[in-house]
Amino acid sequence: MRILLWHVHGSWTTSFVQGPHTYLLPVLPGRGEDGRGRARTWDWPPGAVELTPEQLRGTDVDLVILQRPHEAELATRWLGRRPGRDVPVVYLEHSTPLRDVPDTVHPAARIPNCTLVHVTHFNRLFWDAGRAPTTVIEHGVLDPGPLYTGTEARAAVAINEPLRRGRVTGTDLLPHFASAAPLDVFGMGTDGLAEHLGLPGERLRTRELQQQELHRAMATRRLYLHPFRWTSLGLALLEAMYLGMPVVALDTTETAEAVPPGAGVVSNRPDVLAEAVRTFVAEPEHARAVGAEARAAVSARYGVDRFLDDWDRLTKEVTR
């Protein structure tokens, strides 16, 4: 099967292109948001193929996967075929609605014959899909290996653009947690974060790393802290669990589903979470035991084989 999709979410797409199909990825000069092509920081198989808009015009496509509202127009223009009328279409929604919750109508509701796929049951509950059929295919995460050492008595945090995203990512909560343990914040757009929050550099450090380097660096920290208030289930949380890290997280959106008892501490009480951070930092053997539970839990629920099987079933259904 030949599947057209845009390279929007690197970690998710890395898992998706491990399947048996041919994945057509638009590429543009400069590799901007609408034409990133193949990943440059992940190792993708040869079935992930770059095509320019001109090449797509003459290419047979069995399925279009949309991830952003304007991609329907791009697909129509570049393929010369309309998703939902001339070629089967699925809309993959990664995120929670941002405004008018819980009354936000999803863009897929306006696309004919479009199946809407959510990555969490929470997201499906909160988006209004109108008459569009909906389903959930939970994340699948490639196993980075049990890399956890926890040798550094610090908490790892993964947030892209924490200054811009602010309360959504729990950026304002970081000083509270930094009082419990020093933090290392990994992600893009983190420059100046410590100064913005009024924290000394030793209490909050920032780094931007490529994926494999990121996994190795995170695994040396004693625990993973997930302070997100309102976002879909973060792949960084699942990846940290796969590394064998104990996790401390806000009990929001789908987090409680992903982190079962024994795999970490999940609460909406910042003081409870700060105390959990202190405990993991002070008790490395306890942290290691909880991290082993986290790794077992994520392997059982979010393995990439289950993820690819779920997607294969759906693609067969929508392309009959």
Rank of each mutant, 00 (worst) to 15 (best):
T151Q: 13
A155K: 12
V157R: 12
P162G: 09
L163C: 06
R165D: 12
G166Y: 12
G170K: 13
L173F: 03
L173W: 03
L173M: 11
L173A: 05
P175K: 04
P175A: 02
P175V: 04
H176G: 02
F177V: 05
S179F: 01
S179N: 10
S179K: 11
A181L: 02
P182C: 01
D184K: 12
V185H: 04
F186Q: 00
M188Q: 11
A194V: 07
E195M: 01
L197W: 08
L199V: 09
L199W: 09
L199S: 07
P200C: 02
G201W: 05
G201Y: 05
R203V: 00
L204K: 04
L204C: 11
R205T: 15
T206R: 05
T206I: 08
R207T: 14
R207C: 05
L209H: 04
Q211V: 14
Q211S: 08
E213D: 15
L214H: 09
M218D: 00
T220V: 11
R221S: 14
R222M: 03
Y224Q: 08
Y224G: 05
R229I: 00
R229W: 08
S232M: 01
S232D: 11
L238T: 03
E239W: 00
E239F: 01
L243T: 02
P246Q: 04
P246H: 06
V247M: 07
V247D: 07
A249I: 03
L250N: 06
T253D: 11
A256R: 15
A256N: 10
E257Q: 14
E257Y: 14
A258W: 13
V259I: 10
V259A: 04
